[in-house]
């Protein structure tokens, strides 16, 4: 008997891109994500001068998807607008590029915080070293097993 009968629902799609028109505006459907990533990404995206608008929503609380809407500044469109004349105007970015860059930024931010954590908590460093060693041993074991298998097959031949 399973202790919990109700399992987490998986999203039908891991990633979906919605919207037509210029590629600077898109809605992304991120499967198997929720407010955790949606809100964090939104904050990174609105802190980019090239992004005009970014918002996120979870359309239904029981569906494991989050929608992220990204609208970037479109400088190629309507060339006579004052913003495009400005030499300091930020360059154009497509929505998908903005999303990927934001993901990279957020990931780098995690690295920064992790670095700070390792500075103050020696146990985290110790733990990392231990886990790395363990992973190495596992890899070595795997390689040895592979070699043994190869030898076995060689013998058979």
């Amino acid at each position: 008997m399973s202790v919990n009968e109700v399992k987490i629902r998986r999203a039908p799609c891991a990633f979906e891109l919605r919207g037509t028109g210029p590629p600077t505006s898109r809605t992304f459907v991120l499967g198997d994500e929720d407010h955790t990533l949606g809100n964090a990404l939104r904050h990174v995206l609105i802190n980019d001068a090239r992004v005009d608008f970014c918002g996120y929503c979870v359309p239904h609380p029981s569906e494991p998807v989050v929608h992220v809407r990204v609208q970037c500044r479109n400088n190629t469109d309507g060339g006579d607008s004052s913003s495009s004349m400005d030499p300091d105007a930020p360059s154009t970015l497509t929505a998908i590029e903005a999303l990927k860059e934001a993901c990279q930024t957020l990931s780098d931010q995690c690295d920064l915080v992790l670095e700070k954590l390792e500075e103050v908590a020696p146990e985290v460093v110790e733990d990392r070293i231990r886990m790395d060693k363990l992973a190495e041993e596992d890899d070595r074991e795997m390689e040895e097993e592979m070699e043994e298998e190869e030898e076995y097959f060689d013998e058979e031949e």
Partner: peptide, 11 residues
């Protein structure tokens, strides 16, 4: 959180 981000960087 890093891993979550990396999923979409690889697109």
């Amino acid at each position: 959180l890093k891993k979550k981000c990396e999923r979409f960087i690889e697109l």
